[in-house]
Amino acid sequence: MLKIWSMKQQQQKAENAEGGKKKKKVTAAQLRVQRDLQELALGSTMKTTFPNPDDILNFTLTIEPDEGMYKGGTFSFTFTINQNFPHDPPKVKCSQKIYHPNIDLEGNVCLNILREDWKPVLNLNAVIVGLQFLFLEPNASDPLNKEAAEDLRLNREAFKRNVRTAMGGGAVKGITYERVI
């Protein structure tokens, strides 16, 4: 018992000697994000990049769909995770201006688990699978870009053509989109 005490004191001394300044506290959010990142199954179509390697709460996800209407495009999303994660969902924004029924021109993404259906047992993998799914199966019933949704509902073939035009940097109904191929 005595030995444990003296060991503890020594440890304390060593910590104080280092000058307290180096004491970076790892937050609950960081711990959880670290775990989530380890479990991330990105496959061949997705990639993460960390602009600041010391900051795992802010990163970019790049998706290159290899099938579906958005095949061949490169889409990036910024992930901003706050200290209340996993009680708050990550904030996800598309960096490009794209033609998609569930993504508006500012890049806001309409995905249920990013808003009302988020729960803390979901992980980052669930989010990226959700994003990937939006490119395979755009959803016209819950639109953020109403015109794109209308096009998809009325004429799927015309919608597909619009997607190709927009991805090439062209204009659809007077709105010019960013080139992503």
């Binding site: 937050t27 609950a28 959880r32 989530d36 009680h87 803390p120």
Partner: peptide
Amino acid sequence: CGICRVQFDGTCPT
């Protein structure tokens, strides 16, 4: 624990 993903025998992160 499904929320913090730490084992039940460990503590919560706080």
